[in-house]
Design a protein around this nucleic acid. Structure first.
Length: 729
DNA sequence: AGCACGCCGACT
DNA sequence: GTCGGCGTGCTC
């Protein structure tokens, strides 16, 4: 075998390809298992552990495995587990130039492990470069990424792209600060407002790993409560991680952490900071200089050492859902971390998701709730009003306010700011009779009429056009859009209350806080500013808009948004009042009135269990062109208890900017179908594995089958697999 | 996605 | 015999 190492008698030109092929053939025939690494021309290798196991940074599923490379002697010192490397990667016979073996192009990867031998029987190519000696992929992070990839039927490389930020050489050069010793055990503070609240904090402080679903009381106390849980964890000598939905929440927890811990003990990881600063913060965490992290969803992978606590705030907010493949949800990533690291877990919010209720129902987490007396003390008074009841007052009519709502605003403005929550623009503009406000319905199927771009009317259910509408209730023939944007509501309210200032907060411009003086604050859901001293009143105007959506989560979402706004209002004892304009008999409306988000989630959970809906069942959505989807469903070996629903036609998804560029747009006339695959609890992992391997198998073959290799684009038709789709009807 | 390998038909 | 078409499969 000496011919493999000392290649071809040392001629400077290297061996001709045919000879190399022969050599390789002989290697194959010998089937030498656990071959020693060989490089062409026998470049000097690392003496110890000359094999590097590398994760090649390509998201493609059928490459979702490790590749072994030889470690040249000169890279020996830097080529440690976790570093970023570059390797030659490509198919076919390799040219030999300057005595080096060259395959395809250089691509990035992570060195996962150093080994004495490879179990690959062919000759190993050498590592081309160690990009940086910084070990960015720790064993724990790799383990987590692997678990997330498995859970979401995605590739490890895709997950690592989310978990490890891009390198910045300058940030790496800066030394991270010295780690501080653990802080003293903090006081339980306002955790005493909750049953078992103090015990939870004490358990963290003494090195325990309690798991809790926390229903936070309304008001501003939550951020400090999170900070105290973090401080308790640090006091035990362990690290802590907090994930929040947006930059504003992150800033609040950041401030609370500074208040409880002082400076220098925690890092803030948000998208606002530039890439370099962000990477520097990440490195400080990775190096163990900083033991506590608060951040938005990308922080869910933050490489906090020796985790003692993972926490997520407001898990129902959809920004916790990662946009990039394989679209993991922060709650699930933190659940995986809690399980892998056996650390504490805290899921909190003023509202309660069905998933949170399930964690309690199946005994994985304990509830952390306040008694009814505490709730009564902290929550505002909530009243409901149907939207047919228009005020008599002329100004209120113009602003389309029912009497009760009008009075609540007027009374509230005597004592402080009043919050008005209006639907976000872009919500489906449903139509109603201009005269009697009866909803405009399709005459064929009674579906809701919607205004299309050109102003034409169309049924939202059956799609039939309506050109000659008149109101069956009052005979009116003029329609109005039921949803008006924040700006118009603000204008109308401004006219209705000319003496007070009007402020708006929405997507374009989000206000963080407003002063405690009388003002109308018009905001879309999620953008509500915090008022100094709390709002005197809130008016929730988008009831039907949120409840009307044909979505499994419509009720839960509406309640969550109402509660988020109502939680900013003063307690009932300080005459804080909330008026919600929505049908009072609806379940989420009643839950708001009773301030019982947990009860609502528990009932939803029971209903979903009965209907076999997520999260009680695990679902996956598979979408693609009909033939490709049919072929995929024919191939995939689903677990025996899986159930396929559909397929049904769905709109072709628009290619997002930043997504891998596919040639051209979707051909006109193309349509997609989507099937849902459902499995009972416990079969989720099997489902993900089955979908992943079927997807991987597809990559190798073309879509084959139906001979219509019809021109456009060509190549294997994409089938999209999405675990836990957020938007099932 | 690339790229090489191989099997099969056509041409010097 | 040898060149080169494209179909298939692999990438350490």
């Amino acid at each position: 075998m000496s011919s493999e190492n000392g290649q071809g008698g040392g001629g400077a030109g290297g061996a001709p390809p045919e000879q190399l092929a022969l050599i390789r053939e002989s290697v194959r025939e010998a089937r030498t298992p656990r071959a020693k690494p060989r490089t062409w021309r026998g470049a000097a290798l690392a003496e110890r552990l000359p094999v590097a196991r590398v994760l090649v940074d390509k998201g493609v599923l059928h490459l979702d495995r490790y590749f072994d490379y030889a470690v040249p002697a000169e890279l020996d010192a830097d080529a440690r587990p976790g570093v970023r490397v570059r390797v030659r990667f490509g198919a076919g016979r390799h040219r030999v130039r300057d005595g080096r073996r060259e395959g395809g192009g250089l691509i990035d990867g992570f060195l996962v492990e150093r080994l004495a031998e490879s179990d690959y029987s062919g000759p190993l190519a050498a590592l081309a470069q160690v990009v940086s000696p910084e070990p960015v992929l720790s064993e724990e992070l790799l383990r987590l990424a692997r678990a997330v990839a498995d859970r979401y039927a995605g590739s490890l490389a895709d997950v690592l792209q989310l978990a490890v930020p891009p390198r910045s050489a300058r940030a790496e050069k800066r030394p991270s600060p010295e780690p501080l010793p653990p802080p003293p055990v903090p006081d339980a503070g306002s955790w005493t407002r909750y049953e078992h609240g103090a015990a939870f904090v004490e358990s963290l402080a003494s090195g325990g790993s309690p798991r809790a679903v926390w229903n936070a009381l309304p008001g501003p106390g939550w951020s400090e409560e999170i900070a105290r849980a973090v401080a308790a964890t640090l006091a035990s000598g362990r690290g802590a991680l907090v994930v929040v939905p947006d930059g504003r929440a992150a800033a609040r927890v950041d401030a609370a952490l500074t208040g409880v811990l002082g400076e220098g003990r925690h890092a803030l990881l948000t998208a606002d900071a530039g890439p370099e600063k962000r990477y520097a913060q990440w490195l400080a965490v990775s190096r163990g200089s900083v033991r506590a992290v608060v951040g938005t969803r990308a922080a869910m992978f933050a490489p906090v050492r020796d985790l003692g606590l993972v926490a997520i705030w407001d898990d129902g907010d959809d920004s916790h859902s990662e946009q990039h493949a394989p679209q993991p949800h922060a709650r699930d990533v933190l659940l995986l971390r809690a399980a892998l690291d056996k650390c504490g877990f805290l899921l909190g919010g003023c509202s309660c998701t069905v998933e949170a209720a399930q964690l309690v129902a199946n005994g994985w987490a304990r509830p952390l709730v306040a008694g009814r007396e505490q709730v009564r003390r902290a929550a505002p008074l909530v009243r409901t009003v149907g939207d047919g009841d228009l005020a008599r007052d002329e100004a209120a009519r113009a602003a389309r306010l029912p009497t009760l709502a009008w009075q609540a605003v007027r009374d509230g403005l005597r004592h402080g700011p009043v919050l008005v929550q209006v639907p976000r623009r872009g919500y489906v503009p449903r139509m109603a009779c201009d005269r009697c406000r009866a909803p405009a319905r399709c005459r064929h199927c009674a579906g809701p009429l919607e205004a299309r771009d050109a102003g034409a009317l169309e049924c939202g259910w059956c799609g039939r056009a309506e050109s000659d509408w008149h109101c069956p209730e009052c005979g009116g023939f003029r329609l109005r859009a039921q949803v008006v944007g924040a700006r118009r509501t603000a204008e109308e309210l401004g006219r209705a209350f000319p003496a007070v200032p009007v402020r708006t907060s929405g997507r374009e411009q989000v206000l963080d806080t407003v002063p405690g003086t009388p003002a109308l604050v018009v905001s879309t859901p999620g953008a509500e500013p915090v008022a100094e001293g709390g709002y005197a009143a809130a008016l929730l105007l988008d009831g039907w808009a949120m409840l009307g959506r044909p979505d499994l989560r419509a009720g839960e979402d509406a309640l969550r948004r109402w509660i988020a706004a109502a939680a900013l209002v003063r307690p009932q004892g300080d005459s804080g009042t909330v008026v919600v304009v929505a049908e009072p008999t609806l379940r989420p409306v009643q839950a708001l009135v009773r301030w019982d988000p947990v009860g609502h989630a528990v009932r939803e959970l029971a209903e979903r269990a009965e209907l076999g809906f997520p999260p009680v069942s695990r679902m996956a959505a598979v979408a693609g062109p009909p033939e490709a989807l049919a072929e995929f469903l024919g191939t995939v070996e689903l677990p025996s208890d899986a159930e396929v629903l559909g397929p049904v036609p769905v709109p072709v998804p628009v290619a997002r900017a930043g997504a891998p560029r596919r040639t051209g747009a979707a051909p006109p006339g193309e349509h997609w179908e989507r099937a849902l695959v459902r499995v009972p609890p416990g079969s989720g992992a099997a489902l993900a594995a089955a979908l992943k391997s079927a997807q991987a198998a597809r990559m190798a073959r073309g879509s084959g089958g139906g001979g219509s290799a019809s021109g456009s684009g060509g190549g294997g038709e994409p089938v999209r697999v999405r675990i836990d789709p957020p938007d099932i009807g």
